[in-house]
Design a protein around this nucleic acid. Structure first.
Lengths: 112, 112
DNA sequence: AATCGTTATATTTGAAAAGATATAACGTTA
DNA sequence: TAACGTTATATCTTTTCAAATATAACGATT
């Protein structure tokens, strides 16, 4: 049984974390549900934690990643901007490539 | 000002973390000082924390990574095994390559 | 105006991680 | 055998982080 290589990547802007695995996961859930509270429930994290994450994302990004509305039909909701979608796409792409890259590096520890 | 990509890699064995950045840093300090207590001081972490880290490393690895001796000349000490040195070398190598790889991926978020 | 489900935010509570302190065990050296 | 500096380990305190709870604000709908 050999060792495994694990990795985490994230995108930063000015020392603040912009996007990591968890934030991308949350953003995808928002895209599916149209709501931050529903997204939080689906990921089984507290609404507070989810809200802070999205707040941090929007404060770190150059342009808004989500549009949040309160009141009105259905009480409000949260949806992704096109900018947000392109960020997710870039993150997923880089992350996937990183895994593939590390897979090729595995042979370096197989013999150890 | 563009975003940055950061990464962390680590080596696991059977769900236990074997080597990460902090552990490698500690092992290198042990190699230089010949002592766990001196290494802990140089990294400004508690001896307790350092000891637990090395204990975990040796319990997760297939073969001993350090040799710990108590008593005797100088009170004892800790030194790396050849196996430990090869693990560090592999980790550093993979980590360096990962950075270089991610550097090349940067262009994918430069335009965002 | 009353209702609704959502976003937004503060406060409290609990758990887990880290830090500090103390002490035993060890084996060479003098 | 007494001393030394190290490894090894337990216990207590402190700090930090996550979770839970509560409540206000919002705006279309009725």
């Amino acid at each position: 049984m050999s060792y495994k290589i694990k990795s985490r990547i994230w995108i930063e802007s000015e020392k603040n974390v912009l996007l990591g695995e968890g934030r991308v996961h949350l953003l995808k859930a928002i895209e599916e549900t149209g709501s931050l509270s529903k997204a939080a429930k689906s990921l089984k994290i507290s609404y507070k934690k989810a809200w802070h994450l999205i707040d941090s994302v929007n404060k770190s990004a150059k342009k808004p990643v989500t549009i949040n509305s309160t009141g009105g039909k259905g009480g409000g909701g949260t949806e992704l901007t096109d900018y947000g979608k392109s960020l997710i796409k870039a993150f997923d792409d880089i992350n996937k490539n990183c895994w593939a890259f590390l897979d090729k590096q595995l042979e370096k520890i197989e013999e150890i």
